[in-house]
Amino acid sequence: MMDTWNYIEYGAWALSALFGLLIVIDWIKIDTTYSEEALTSSREGELEAMTEKHRLEG
């Protein structure tokens, strides 16, 4: 016989699918809207390099 915990199990499956879906939909949307060049334009230490430059110029 089903009890509350069995319904909670189904709820957990449903929520898992929902979170997965939210991620995948947004992922597809972002990858088709923005260029690959823009998405991978992050550069390590850029802020530090800029700060350093600013300090030298200042």
């Binding site: 009890d3 509350t4 915990w5 199990e9 189904y10 957990a12 499956w13 929520l15 898992s16 979170f19 997965g20 939210l22 991620i23 947004d26």
Partner: peptide
Amino acid sequence: AGMTGHEGGLDQRPFIVLAIMFLAWLNY
């Protein structure tokens, strides 16, 4: 679930998957 009177054990898989999916979504 056992402490609250549920008999026969619970399927742990949906809770394992939910933990990973929820936290991945939060991080995302």
